[in-house]
Design a protein around this nucleic acid. Sequence first.
DNA 1: AACTTGACGAGGG
DNA 2: CCCCTCGCCAAGT
Length: 121
Amino acid sequence: MKKVDERSYRESVYELVRSIPVGRVMTYGQIALMLGEGYTARTVGYVMHGADSEQVPWQRVINSQGKCSTGRLTIPINLQQELLEAEGVEFNAAGKCDLGRFQWFPEGFDAREDIQPSLLI
DNA sequence: AACTTGACGAGGG
DNA sequence: CCCCTCGCCAAGT
């Protein structure tokens, strides 16, 4: 078992991101851990910046500190946060959301066992 | 083939 | 809270 079936590296990431419910988020590192070998938070971020905003709810992927990391090049600062707030995710004045409340864990995925404690915040 | 660049994350100061 | 260092790995030069 190498990569992931016949799907491309990127598609596996997008498929998982599409499974995140409205108003919930996942972190780059969490996605990397769930996809397994070959995936790291860094490459998930790389893949996400190339996501088609029409087909992937890219705004639901934030960093492990509960903050949006998109205030750089192509994406307007605050756009990601605004989109998330529009679907119910709350952010404090420092632009950070409570992962304990908004982070999404797929069913069958035991956060306590499958994810490093530090990722649970 | 070598080197650089990220929408990252953990650990340490 | 801020800053820096490393490890990570796909892609583009």
